[in-house]
Amino acid sequence: MRLEAQNVSFRYKAGPWILRNLSLSVMPGEIVGLTGPSGCGKTTLARLLAGFERPDAGKIALDGQPLPAAGYCPVQLISQHPEQAVNPRWQMHNTLCESYLPDKSLLEELGIKNEWLKRWPNELSAGELQRFCVARALGPQTRFLLADEMTTMLDAVTQAQIWQAVLRLAGERRIGILLTSHDSTLIKRISHRNIDLTSIF
């Protein structure tokens, strides 16, 4: 099972082309770093691969098939802004358990405290919210994870804590990861190969 972008082109409405004729693939268990300057389309590419946007030309394929239109998507996106990725009118336990029941050991590994489950999103910091977003995205059906500046807003200790949990689980379940980051030391540390978005189209 591989995740592929095949000759994908995309623009927002009638705006300028953001991606043109772009192809890439990620294999199971592979960790790929995606770099490039601000505004070059990294986040757009991640949104396309996760099915949040549809390409104007070309296709996104999971094992040769289009992404499922309904149900749990095996390609999960974790965004840079967790406060925009959770329902402000849900207590955190609803957000956490929306698609599956994460086990206690994963919550512990991510440093999620029991008392946070009853909180509302505005009562938690960005770092605390991001831990929930990561747990939520790691359901048993997840095959690929798109980490879009997942830990940019976090301190180094929290960043290492979240990544170590994700890397352990991804290793066990052979989840493929595409990560974007401005931090070249992070990319160098964890990715198997690196794609510079400005050099491939």
Partner: peptide, 13 residues
Amino acid sequence: ALPQNDFRPVPGS
């Protein structure tokens, strides 16, 4: 915990 050092976390929060 920096990626260029040990990338080692501390449990808890």
